[in-house]
Nucleic acid binder design. Structure first.
Ligand SMILES: [Zn+2]
Ligand SMILES: [Zn+2]
Ligand SMILES: [Zn+2]
Ligand SMILES: [Zn+2]
Lengths: 126, 126
DNA sequence: TTATTTTCGCAACTAAGTTGCAATAATATA
DNA sequence: TATATTATTGCAACTTAGTTGCGAAAATAA
């Protein structure tokens, strides 16, 4: 692998994740950053940051791609596999720091599980 | 709501699901049916059959839409909410007739859960 | 300061899914 | 059965997320 460069685009996207406790959709990021960089750059920086273990991706409720910052991951392993929550009222998406046990299933080897819980967040259930 | 008609397209798609124990992706269905009907018709018939409770849709591992036949659903309720399994080797997708308990989470109301288990199916684990 | 190489912007592309509308086909009515 | 009604279809054009190739620009090394 080649040496990675700390460019303006990389630093900007990284700072957005470091200042957000929520997940961010790629679509929103492209819109938010449209005056700062090209959408191709957004996609490429996100892919790179995921490979480096800084952020992780998952699929939201419309098949859209979301990213959130990682806790204890690095370039070799993503250690923070967890379910995600999407509020169906306001659209907010969050990582859930809980473990949902997946039972073993006969005649199949389960290697991973994508779990998206949907409902109402604390703001919207008031 | 208007009266629904039993057209050739509806009967054909319905028979495909009745003869398949596996889930089918929309992309594959459009390809498989390209000599029988337009892709727009495939999308519209699938939407209609889901509304009627004959089939249900979910998102597979690349954000693609899949459909599978329902067991005990009707036009008013989909009663067969369950996890799905996708084989990462052969791509096959199946409904899992198991229940994965979702814990309640503080400050959030969980209304539904999309669970996609990924791994190897019985054919591919040999 | 120059050379090297990664990263970026741009434009063009791919692919899933949607929309409007006129033509067709299924059903109802006479 | 013939005709009227209206649900459904095909088509073409569109939308949107995501990708690709390549020359230009920027970051780092020499
Ligand atoms: Zn909310
Ligand atoms: Zn997460
Ligand atoms: Zn398999
Ligand atoms: Zn199913």
């Amino acid at each position: 692998m080649s040496v990675k460069r700390k460019t303006k685009s990389v630093n900007l996207i990284l700072s957005i994740f470091e200042n957000s406790s929520e997940a961010l959709s790629v679509v929103d990021l492209v819109e938010q950053l449209k005056n700062d960089m090209n959408k191709t750059t957004v996609y490429r920086v996100l892919e790179r940051l995921e490979n480096e273990g800084a952020i992780h991706s998952f699929t939201g409720s419309n098949g859209l791609t979301w990213y959130a910052k990682c806790r204890e991951c690095d370039a070799h392993h993503h250690n923070d596999i967890h379910p995600h929550f999407q509020c169906e009222k306001c659209g907010k998406v969050e990582c859930l720091e809980i473990n949902i046990p997946i039972p073993s299933i006969e005649n199949r080897i389960i290697e991973s599980a994508d779990v998206l819980l949907k409902g109402q967040c604390s703001d919207c259930m008031k």
